[in-house]
Design a protein around this nucleic acid. Structure first.
Length: 993
DNA sequence: CCCCAACCGTA
DNA sequence: GTACGGTTGGGGG
């Protein structure tokens, strides 16, 4: 059906609506999970109203055609004309972001066309359609109140402010702006627009602009006769701003020649699909609109299942600016909503894939030219390099110190690498320098050698460097940046705007090799960098970096910066090409300062308690040793599994359970427990002795050695990039494996204390991995159980064995619990049998029965395995990838192992992502509650966060912390089960947990 | 001095 | 059955 005279086209400005509605409407959230839906609700109500009784609104007519128009991305032709266009836009609020996608889904649920075109703004598309319809003789209503669209108003084209139910025609434009619609372009060119960063004439606002246009007729005349303006200041400003005004005119003029994917005729209103719309509205939990729609289409809403919604991250995968000269942190939070997946992209060499390929070509294979490295020994030269870095906007940075511990390390020097655009063709396009600051000569006095000659005074160099490192407009690239962040922080410099090549690699390739610089250089550049050992020696001959000869140090340090910059150039575009930018920018990079601060804070331990415990443990262990020697009939090293095996299974002839893979007798706790159960007295003593010596050596003896000499606290180090799943790890010391399961072990936790006037507050997720499983596998019984807050293991047992929860034997529940954990670990009959000490066939029966009761779990597992086999990786609910390159191994046990890991990774990894989000959100949440000075996050133990809180801030902090953690998945993912957090505060970690 | 295997602490 | 890190013993330098 072709559009004709008398038809009425409605063009809804979808992007404009959502921004306006978000701020104007109350912040409505979905009841079941807190998903922000205020703008979506307003949008649906508005559309429904227009579709059903537009006649009753101030529009007064019913649409024959209707389309909803969206912005595609922030990269439009306007950016080419004027790069600063919209450059000052900050990221949209996180609550707004998911609503872009939801509004698109709403549009489709209403059976309406959803239109966007790459390179153009919604306004240009609207202008093109409006003019085309007008030319045919149709009437047009633009549903928007944006002044940028007012230039389109004519006798046949009106605007409609749906939130005020107000129509905007020619008189309304004149009333509001003092000029008719056709002069809006001239007016906007003069006034500019600060929100879009469109330049205007200083001192000229709408009133003056209208007055000038009234007097001179139009902009061209005004500019031509600007000399005649009486007010001196105004005249000067206009004359000075002439050229800029011309650019502004280009920016504000809407294009009416956008290529249209959908012809006008295709915008004709189609019949509503009642059930489809109701399914969407029910999923959004818009109850009253659901009821109204059901009445209108004569549907039974209760018979229609809610739709499954995709809550999208808002940012376009192709959105991030890849230009190294731009400001990644500022620009990466693209203003644009997510595009439709099907929208075709242009092949113009600017796509991430092409850029990645080009960068690899340019920097991947190129010989590294160490002869270009320089040592900077004077301030003027350093200053020159720093200003070059600031101009280029991109610099690789690396610190050299005398210690691997960033809390103790003293700065010895630093290196920089820059893109060198002046280099001759064929030469390396990167230059690098090392700036020695604290090198010493080996042969000094007893106090440790003399300060080496030819180094810039530390204070001068740092003062100069600070400007660069803290400049948000310059992107600093480093490898394992948390280290450099902490070191520089101790020298009073806070890094701003950074990328970490280690984390980029981790996001791209978790599970495929390590992410250290040497390995990355081999993998991506085919280059082997000088090793640390080569410059500093190893073993007994090792020296700290301050004693390394400055020339050798330059070769090593400058190369590190050089390689880091090359890695960034090659890897960074891969993020966007693979759609992993959001994972990097939301789950990795923002965690760097959060973890750095946690590490820097540290936690207090009570050395007295540990020392007393050490004594007790030593005594008890010694007593056990005497008994062990007595029972064994000889003295031997109880700590040697080899000697122990010989005693137990050789000399004493006990029945050997199993062998290790090297053929030795296994003396694991499991084996010893089994022997003890058969009545042998020795094995139990060994088990107990091991527990005591383990606690002593690993904890009570070792922890005091980690107390920092100045802070008197223990500072662990978190690794962001050492697990396949996305979990953190903790080392030196590992504070993620402090004992808790046994009473003896828990005594160690009492040594982790709060400082006077404070409490330790522990907040942990309850059953987070099972909840994630219920979410991803969509298991009705599990979802219901979590929604109802019932005992999940008892529920499982009840489902499986038909035993009522009331009065359930503890053994029945224990088995169900083991099965639940087994499921998360990618269950096998072998493993379950081991865990429960039952026959493998019995374990197999359990698993079979479990899958009968929860077929969705088997489906999830099969689907996950199939996905892993096809792609070589699996994904968390936030899109993080874990790679399993060996999943297709021909070795059956290797393959099975990879399959179990692949099943576990999305569950463990999604839980890890959730707590990462919580950690990132905690500081702003505390800040908002006015608590940031009184609450400090200290530790993370996978599903638990430990804070140090001022005594009288505990009551206020607890709800802020638990709410932030429980809502942490939002708005990126709306969990289908609630998350639950338990929290407690006390003077030590044992009582708080 | 370095590395691996065995063992065991946590989630 | 998943994911880690630390300690010890012991082999091979």
């Amino acid at each position: 059906m072709t559009m004709k005279k008398g038809d009425h086209l409605f063009l809804v400005d979808g992007s404009g609506f959502i921004f306006r509605a978000f701020h104007a409407l109350p912040a409505l959230t979905r009841k079941s999970d807190g998903l922000p839906v205020g703008a979506v609700s307003g949008f649906c109500n508005m559309l429904w109203k227009l579709l059903t009784d537009a006649r009753d609104t101030s529009v007064g007519v019913t649409p024959s055609h209707l389309a909803v128009i969206f912005d595609y991305s922030s990269k439009t032709f306007r950016k080419d004309i004027y790069p600063e266009y919209k450059a000052n836009r900050s990221a949209p609020p996180e609550d707004l972001v998911p609503q872009f996608g939801l509004i698109r889904q709403a549009t489709r649920a209403f059976n309406l066309p959803c239109i966007e075109t790459e390179g153009f703004e919604a306004d240009d598309i609207i202008a093109t359609y409006a003019r085309a319809a007008e030319a045919i003789g149709a009437d047009v209503t633009i549903v928007s109140s944006d002044k940028d669209l007012m230039q389109l108003v004519t006798p046949n084209v009106h605007m409609y402010d749906s939130m005020k139910d107000k129509q905007i025609g020619i008189p309304e434009v004149i009333e509001k702006w003092g000029v008719p619609p056709e002069k809006m372009i001239d007016l906007q060119s003069l006034t500019g627009d600060s929100t879009d960063n469109i330049p205007g004439i200083p001192g000229i606002g709408p009133k003056t602009a209208a007055q000038l246009l009234e007097e001179y007729g139009d902009l061209d005349t005004l500019l031509a006769r600007a000399e005649e303006i009486k007010q001196a200041k105004r005249r000067e400003n206009i004359l000075a701003g002439r050229n800029l005004v011309q650019i502004s005119r280009q920016l504000v003029t809407l294009r009416t020649d956008v290529p249209l994917d959908m012809p006008l005729d295709a915008l004709m209103l189609e019949k509503q699909d009642g059930p489809k719309l109701i399914a969407f509205l029910k999923a959004m939990e818009f109850t009253s609109l659901t009821r109204r729609v059901a009445e209108a289409c004569d549907c039974d809403a209760s018979a229609i299942a809610p739709a499954t919604l995709v809550v999208e991250w808002g940012e376009a995968a192709h959105g991030p600016d890849l230009d190294p000269g731009a400001e990644p942190q500022a620009s990466s939070a693209a203003v644009s909503p997510a595009p439709l997946a099907s929208t075709p992209g242009k092949t113009d060499g600017t796509k991430p894939d092409d850029l990645a390929a080009a960068r690899l070509e340019a920097f991947g294979g190129k010989e590294i030219d160490r002869s270009r490295y320089v040592t900077i020994r004077d301030l003027p030269t350093l200053t020159l390099w720093l200003s070059e870095a600031r101009e280029s906007g991109l610099v690789a940075f690396d610190t050299e110190t005398n210690s691997l511990d960033p809390m103790q390390a003293e700065l010895v020097g630093f290196s920089l690498a820059l893109q060198d655009n002046s280099s001759t063709p064929g030469a390396s396009a990167i230059k690098a320098a090392y700036i020695p600051l604290g090198h010493r000569t080996g042969h000094g006095d007893l106090l440790g050698g003399g300060h080496a000659e030819g180094q810039i005074p530390m204070a001068d160099a740092l003062a100069a460097l600070k400007g660069l490192l803290e400049d948000p407009a310059v992107l600093k690239v480093a490898q394992n940046l948390k280290y450099d962040y902490l070191v520089m922080k101790r020298y009073g410099i806070t890094l701003k705007s950074f990328d970490d090549t280690m984390l980029i690699s981790y996001v791209l390739e978790a599970g495929q090799g390590t992410h250290g610089m040497d390995a990355l250089s081999e993998r991506w550049l085919g280059h082997t960098p000088i090793t640390y050992k080569e410059v500093a020696g190893s073993g007994k001959g090792a020296v700290t970096f301050d004693l390394v000869d400055i020339d050798k140090a330059t070769a090593y340090a400058a190369e590190d910066a050089d390689v880091t910059l090359r890695l960034w150039l090659v890897m960074k575009p891969r993020l966007a090409a693979m759609g992993l930018t959001r994972v990097y920018e939301r789950l990795e990079r923002p965690l760097v300062p959060v973890l750095a601060h946690m590490e820097a804070r540290g936690i207090t331990i009570d050395r007295q308690i540990l020392s007393r415990l050490s004594g007790e443990l030593a005594q008890k262990a010694a007593a056990f040793e005497d008994e062990i020697y007595e029972l064994a009939g000889e003295r031997f090293n109880v700590g040697s599994p080899k000697q122990l095996g010989d005693i137990l299974f050789g000399k004493m002839g006990l029945p050997g359970g199993s062998k290790t893979k090297t053929g030795q007798w296994s003396t694991s706790a499991q084996v010893l427990e089994d022997l003890a159960a058969q009545g042998a007295p020795l094995p139990r003593k060994i088990v107990d002795w091991r527990q005591l010596t383990k606690l002593k050596s690993t904890y009570t003896d070792a922890l005091p050695g980690y107390v920092h000499p100045q802070t008197k606290r223990v500072h662990t180090s978190y690794s962001l990039a050492s697990t396949t799943t996305g979990r953190l790890s903790s080392s030196e010391p590992n504070l993620q494996n402090i004992p808790v399961r046994t009473a003896e072990g828990r005594k160690i936790r009492t040594a982790f204390i709060s400082t006077p006037g404070h409490k330790l507050l522990s907040a942990d997720y309850s059953q987070i991995e099972l909840r994630v499983l219920a979410h991803v596998a969509e298991i009705p019984q599990l979802r219901q159980a979590f929604a109802d807050g019932v005992d999940i293991h008892a529920m499982t047992a009840s489902e499986m064995f038909g035993v009522p929860v009331e009065g359930m034997p503890s053994e029945v529940r224990r088995r169900a619990k083991a099965i639940n954990f087994g499921i998360i670990y990618g269950i096998s009959a072998f493993g379950l049998a081991n865990q429960l000490s039952i026959e493998r066939s019995e374990a197999g029966d359990y698993i079979k029965r479990y899958f009968e009761r929860f077929p969705g779990i088997r489906d999830y597992m099969e689907n996950t395995k199939a996905f892993a086999r096809e792609h070589g990786y699996v994904e968390t609910i936030f899109g993080r990838r874990a790679h399993y390159p060996e999943i297709k191994s021909s070795n059956p046990s290797m393959r099975a192992f990879n399959e179990r890991a692949a099943i576990n990774a999305p569950i463990q990894g999604s839980a890890a992502d959730i707590i990462r989000r919580a950690m990132i959100q905690i500081e702003p949440a505390l800040e908002k509650a006015g608590l940031s000075e009184r609450v400090r996050m200290l530790l993370q133990v996978h599903d638990e966060l430990i804070f140090e809180v001022e005594d009288d801030a505990v009551d206020a902090a607890m709800p802020v912390i638990t709410a932030t953690m429980e809502q942490a998945a939002m708005p990126a993912v709306a969990m289908r089960v609630p998350l639950k957090v338990d929290a407690r505060a006390a003077n030590n970690w044992d009582e708080a947990h």
